[in-house]
Design a protein around this nucleic acid. Structure first.
Lengths: 227, 227
DNA sequence: CGATCGCTTGATTCCGATCAACAGGAGTGG
DNA sequence: CCACTCCTGTTGATCGGAATCAAGCGATCG
């Protein structure tokens, strides 16, 4: 991990002092340049709910879940973060949700103070942070639609389609997360997720190479919300 | 509705040219100064899903629902907007959800281009927009927890507590929305909402002055997530 | 006044949760 | 190596909470 002073000199490198203003991705694309990196093994906590938010993170490899657990053990996963994606930056100074590694992961880290200092001087950085928050907001809204309206089967189909799009862009996925994580993301139980996937497979709506390796049929790959 | 030129002169007024930088609320607090206003009757659409996002709105009186309807008629309300609250500003140029008046409402309106122009020149404006988006994100995440984890009764209690806090700050609420809106917000049916409220009343967990006027008992007013 | 709307309540159905058992690896240690 | 356990995922049986279907009530309105 670097000091703020070192990060500041990096900032000038990134900003290209005296040249054009920072372009989109100037911060997020350059996390590698100004931060350190850490490794987390499967199920390790990256940060906890209510902990101070001192860092900004970017997935280098592996995958991360953003979640919160209620007193009685019920858990909701609000998002999965895949390679190249950013997480952990809060407007306040405390994390509202926890972040945990789904698989063994390498995570890039930048001090929050570095980003804040950057943002204080450069409006484009703030614009990027804002745009990033707005994209997160959008996917949360989509997810609320899923949680509020869709049946179990529909949720699983929507999930598989989304993961296929995000991970491979095609119609074949290697899921990085366990069934329990899928269940907690979709607001279902592990049994219901497993059953839904089995039924989709026996419908030939999807193909199951292994339990984690799934091939989407054309209906699922290109259809609308309903399967 | 004013022109951009007029709005720009307002900007200088608000910014206090040559003085301190814009304070928090410089944009949102001054919507009255730089925009127009419109009236909407109950159930009127303020803007639709997929429509161009040309304006930023602020509730003067009444209340608004932010929602999306699926092809088959299933509807999810993602948020309610109460007096003094802002809605309708998107990062992209298209609305992702519709906005409709819940009750007869007066809505203040500012052209998006005005805000964008302001933001282009003033970093604090961007910071405010970002902070606003971040607050929205936070409440969406809380709502996902509700939709993914809570039982019907728990959802209704959480909803009543939230509305009481937002509207009166105390333990008594006059709900501005119909049961159907509550149901679509909580991911339940109207019958389940009605039944839950009736049961809470017969438990003496809440008091029902009228169907919309609700008094929260101390357990509900100050308790945690579970009722 | 009938008609519509918002809300409530009752009866029944059904989807997903729960409880329970088991199969296939992966890792561990003798 | 095998026996062992642990972990993940699947499947079956049953239960229960919320959805659905249906009816009725009071208020508001044309």
């Amino acid at each position: 991990m670097q000091t703020v002073a070192q990060a500041n000199s990096s900032r000038q490198l990134v900003a290209g002092r005296g040249r054009r203003p920072l372009r989109v991705d100037a911060v997020f694309g350059s996390v590698e340049l100004i931060g350190g990196h850490m490794s987390f093994s499967r199920n390790a906590e990256i940060y906890g709910d209510e902990e101070p938010a001192d860092y900004l993170y970017k997935v280098a490899s592996g995958a991360v879940r953003i979640c919160k657990v209620l007193d009685d053990g019920r858990r909701q996963i609000t998002a999965f973060c895949l390679p190249d994606e950013i997480f952990g930056f809060e407007v306040g100074d405390v994390h509202r949700f926890a972040a945990e590694a789904i698989a063994d992961s390498r995570i890039l880290v930048v001090k929050r103070s570095t980003v804040v200092a950057l943002a204080a001087r450069n409006g484009d950085v703030v614009r990027q942070l804002w745009a990033h928050t707005a994209r997160e907001l959008q996917s949360m809204q989509e997810h609320m639609l899923l949680l509020g309206c869709l049946s179990a089967r529909e949720r699983v189909v929507a999930f598989l389609r989304m993961m296929a799009k995000r991970i491979s862009g095609g119609n074949e996925v290697e899921l990085p997360m366990a069934r329990q994580d899928i269940a907690d993301y979709l607001g279902l139980t592990i049994e219901t997720v497993s059953r839904s996937i089995s039924q989709l497979a026996s419908d030939a709506t999807i193909g199951l190479r292994t339990s984690r390796h799934i091939v989407l049929g054309n209906r699922v790959a290109f259809g609308q919300l309903n399967a």
